[in-house]
Amino acid sequence: MMKYVKALRHAKFWKLGMSLLIIILGLSLKSFAQITTNNALPIGKGKAIFRVQNKIIRATGDPTEANRELLLQAFPVVGVYGITPRLALFGVLPVLDKSLTLTAPQGRITRSGNFGLGDARLFARYDIFRKSSKGKILSISPFGGAELPTGSDNERDNFGRLPQPLQLGSGSVGPFFGAVLTYQTLQWFFDAATSYQVNTKANNFTFGNEYRLDGVVKYRLFPRELRSGVPGFFYILLESNLIIQDKNEVNGVSDPNSGGTTWFADPGLQYITRKFVFEGVIQLPVVQDLNGNALETDFITTLSVRVNI
C-alpha cells in the first residue's frame, strides 16, 4: 500500500489532478445549499416548510492524463420556520456522496469517502420592505448566517487522507450575508438574490470567498385562466446563477489553479399545490472562466419536494 501511495505522491499528473480537483470542488460544494429559492421561500408566523432535494453534479473533460471524472451527489434537507410574520429562520443540512475517478500509475482508481453529513447552513431572513396588493407582493429581505463545520473533515480512503475538497465538511465556519428581492403576481414570479460568503481557514486550507448573484423568472403555464378556488399552478422557469470565487489558500499560499467565474442558466419546471411543491431544474454552464487549469462542470441537476406544515 505504501508503495502505491509513494508512487501517487510522485506522479506529476496526480499533483495536477489534485489541484484541478480542488478548484472544481471548491466551486461546486460551496454552492450546494445556496439555491435562490431557499432564500425566497415564503413563510408566515408559526409556519414551517420542509424541502428535500437531490442534486447531482458531473464534471468531466479533463485535458490531462489523469482523465478525471467527478460525480457529486448532494441531498440537502431544508427547514424554514416563521418566528414572526417578517422574520424566518432557515436551516440546511446536506448529506453528501462524492467520488472522483481518475487514472493513476496503478490504473483507473476511484477516490471517495463516506456517505454522510456535510456542513450545515443556518441563517435568518427579515423582510425590511413589503408592499402587497390584490394578487401581488413585493418584498426586500436581507439575510445572514453561517456555514457550520458539521461535516467530517478527516475522511480517508485506501490511498490516505482525502484532499480537503473531497472531505464531507470544510472544518471551518463560513459567515455569509446577502439580500433577496421578490416580486410575485398570479402569473409571474421574479426574484433576485445577492450574497457574499467569507470562508475561514481549517486544516491549513481556506476556500476562496464567494460572491453570488442568483435570479429566477417563473411563468404560470397552467391553468391558463384562473378559476375559482386554489388550483395547482404549473410553472415554467429560468434561473440564473453567477458565482465568483476567490482563489483558495493552501498552507497560506494562494493557489493559482483555483477560483474564477461561473455563470449557469437553469431551465426548469415547477408544480405548486396548497400543500406541496414539486420542482426540477438543470443548471447548464454558460460561462466558465476559471483560473489556471480546471475541470469544468457539465451540468447540475436538482429535483426537489417541498411540504407546507
Binding site: L226, G229, R274, V277, N308
Partner: peptide, 28 residues
Amino acid sequence: GLACPFCAYGIEKKLKKIDAIDKLYVNL
C-alpha cells in the same frame, strides 16, 4: 399578497385556528 397556492395554505392554516370559523374558502 395572495399570489400562489402555497401562500393560500398559510392563510387557511392561520384562520382555521380561530374557534368561531366553521369553514373557509380561499379564492386566489
